[in-house]
């Protein structure tokens, strides 16, 4: 009897974790689509690393470890990092990739300094940093799921409301401006949504692996469809699928960390999509190539036969 109730409790925990991971996958998959289409796949990596000093400062200021406060700090720092990246690119001749690298690593370094400072005062332990780096999908609680659901839901609803405008911004900025849409504002809006997706996702997979959660579902989805609508939907599904399957796989055996397992699941989805998706997929391309070659060969044979007949 006791065993049974323990089992039920375990399953319940697993269910909560699964729901949380699925929600996070949905949000980062859908919003990551825009990052991938704007060729800003690695901006996510920069934002997620840049969030660390924000978490540390939020803790130093409030002394609280409440997820909402830390998430807020992370969002502000991630946002400032993005702003810095944009300004440096605009004001200097330094290329985008170098700016990302320098902001990513130095913000993180500063976060580390703050973290050691907190550690020295004895308020926190190393576990806090590990959580930031690798996420804590396995310890997601009901209240976390609520936070993720509300914040992520708001982000997705905003994305849907401004669907047409965001699509135009990503596809053709100049045209969008010419018909009167404020592209700066839209850019800020889209980046803010991305920041929300990232700081939420940090809880599941951590800073190091966050970029995969944005990029992988979108890249996989792109192979199956040529429509943005379907791509965002599929990316959300793939993200959720990776979240759930990663959670389940890591729960089957001890010492399989959840975050990396989720990322590997997402990677497998990408691999399968690139290989087998109809039309764009590699296997499909190979078949088409072979077929067109054999068509060509038949046609050439026919011509050859014809000319031989004529010469006879």
């Amino acid at each position: 009897m006791e065993n049974l109730s323990a089992l039920i409790r375990l399953d319940y925990t697993l269910m909560i974790v699964g729901i949380g991971a699925a929600l996070l996958g949905t949000v980062s998959g859908a919003l990551g689509t825009y990052a991938v289409l704007r060729r800003q796949s690695l901006l996510g990596d920069a934002i997620s690393h840049a969030a660390l000093p924000g978490i540390a400062i939020a803790f130093l200021l409030t002394g609280s470890k409440a997820p909402l406060i830390l998430v807020f700090g992370a969002a502000v720092a991630g946002w400032l990092g993005t702003l810095l990246i944009m300004s440096i690119v605009r004001l200097t001749r330094i290329k985008y990739d170098s700016v990302l690298a320098i902001v990513l690593s130095t913000f993180f370094g500063f976060g580390l300094v703050l973290h050691t400072l907190i550690q020295r005062t004895g308020n926190a332990n190393q576990a806090g940093l590990d959580t930031f780096l690798f996420g804590q999908a396995a310890t997601i609680l009901e209240s976390d799921v609520l936070t993720i659901g509300i914040l992520g839901g708001v982000a997705l609803i905003i994305m849907l409301i401004f669907w047409k405008e965001l699509k135009l911004l990503v596809f053709d900025e100049g045209f969008a401006a010419s018909i009167g849409f404020p592209i700066r504002t839209l850019d800020v809006l889209l980046t803010s949504l991305l920041v929300i997706a990232i700081v939420l996702g940090l809880q599941a997979v951590g800073a190091v692996l966050m970029s995969a959660m944005l990029v992988a579902p979108a890249v996989a989805a792109r192979q199956w469809t040529n429509r943005l609508r379907l791509m965002v939907f599929l990316a959300a599904c793939f993200g959720a699928l990776a979240g759930v399957s990663g959670t389940i796989i890591s729960s089957t055996a001890s010492r399989i960390p959840t975050g990396p397992t989720i990322v590997l699941c997402a990677t497998v989805i990408v691999g399968l999509s690139i290989a087998f998706a109809p039309n764009r997929g590699l296997v499909w391309g190979r078949i088409r190539h072979r077929r067109s070659r054999s068509d060509l060969k038949t046609a050439a044979d026919g011509l050859l036969k014809q000319s031989q007949q004529r010469s006879e």
Binding site: V36, R39, L42, L214, I274
Partner: peptide
């Protein structure tokens, strides 16, 4: 099928 930045990010 994949652009450079996404390829790195994957």
């Amino acid at each position: 099928l994949v652009k450079e930045d996404a390829a790195i990010g994957l």
